[in-house]
Design a protein around this nucleic acid. Structure first.
Lengths: 222, 222
DNA sequence: TCACTAATTATACAATTGTATAATTTCTAT
DNA sequence: ATAGAAATTATACAATTGTATAATTAGTGA
């Protein structure tokens, strides 16, 4: 008889790490943090539990890596929206950024659940606390730049501390809407959250933000 | 020799339930959800693990009860601020409500951690999902009434759907600021969050909200 | 004082958890 | 082809978990 089928296939280190991180995120998002046991994660990644320890020295290491990837996914989605918009009016760039942050896949129950699961560890896990802080300031600073650009183009002169205040407030609007949209997906119509976000941030900074920006709304209605 | 010291004291049902719920909340808030084991909770409540099952048929029951109490604590804190303000101008009542929601003890790391721990279960635990939904709408509706009163007093006519939108947006501002203030307590000066909240919501609804409302700010500055 | 009820503790148990280590299998270089 | 290194699986283990049940203890009314 022919040689028996292979019992496993060797994969590269990045591949396996990615698989395990993806499996971890997927499990936490869909079944909650308690479901993310080493055995469940391994099964989800089509791998044996022992392999986890081969790539991550401890489970906390894996969780920490998963957190970082989730955060970069979140912030990355908003960031991508600004590429190829170099020559677009500042107000439209800001609107695109806000829209992207308040539209699927950023606004998503699993995404919020994931974030909440990690937030729970923020107090007792320094790695996660630092990562959270960095992600928060990164996002807020980007928002501040975008808002500053809008004012610059309009010739408005705004004090630095005032600009910070507006960025904090705009960030809060996005966070709050993102949260509610993800936690209570049935409570809002599609597009409603992004629309409210645009109007609200527009009111806060005193500049109307164009609605229905680019890729995020259906073009047929424009 | 005298009779040996009592090995335990009998307490009333509400007392023990309260103790156990408090211990649960305290543990989750300070050490995270994983630390809230039946044994740790019992120890925290100066009780034997077995007693938990005497008052709560399952651990999930206890967790669920703890969630409800936490939510009513949160919303209650904002609600109390409106009592004995029946004859105050609507804008000041709204301001007091916002201030109370964005000031300790509502804004607090433990409070946010607690809320995040429960949010993680929102997808897979129907009881918690329903409780969350109710708490959200309860808070938002109250906000909507307060905003509506402000407009009524100013003689402004605002459509119902527009009022809802403003309540959603204001709620998002509060949620976002509350979250960031609790998760990153060092990132903000005392009173800064409440101040930003008042200005932002004021901008959103188009009505300046009085700062330094009542009990929440130091009276010496007034 | 004394039984009786209900609250509390004590003990036990099976399942699950993270981790450690030994045993295999695959792939690559020679 | 084959040996050796590296990746993967297999197995084991002690600790912890939620829960169930039996054994005590405290308070109450007669």
């Amino acid at each position: 008889m022919a040689r028996q089928r292979k019992k496993f296939v060797r994969k590269s280190i990045p591949f396996r790490k990615d698989s395990l991180i993806s499996a971890t995120l997927s499990l936490i998002a869909t079944e909650g943090i308690d479901a993310a046991t080493v055995r469940a994660i391994a099964k989800h990644a089509d791998v044996t539990p022992g392999l986890i320890r081969y790539y991550f020295s401890t489970k906390e290491d894996l969780i920490s890596a998963a957190y970082k990837r989730h955060m970069s996914t979140l912030t990355g989605a908003s960031h991508v929206s600004l590429q190829s918009m170099e020559n677009v009016k500042p107000a439209e760039r800001l609107a695109a950024f806000v829209s992207a942050s308040l539209t699927p896949p950023v606004v998503d129950p699993g995404s919020v659940a994931l974030w909440a699961a990690f937030l729970n560890r923020i107090q007792n896990d320094e790695k996660i606390r630092i990562a959270h802080k960095e992600a928060y300031y990164d996002f807020r600073d980007r928002l501040e730049v975008l808002i500053g650009d809008v004012f610059a183009q309009l010739g408005k002169n705004v004090k630095a501390c005032e600009l910070v205040r507006l960025a904090i407030a705009s960030n809060a609007v996005i966070d709050g809407l993102w949260l509610e949209g993800g936690a209570l997906p049935d409570a809002f119509k599609p597009g409603e959250i992004a629309e409210i976000g645009l109007k609200s941030i527009g009111a806060i900074i005193g500049v109307a933000l164009p609605k229905g920006a680019y890729e995020y709304e259906n073009h047929s209605a424009g």
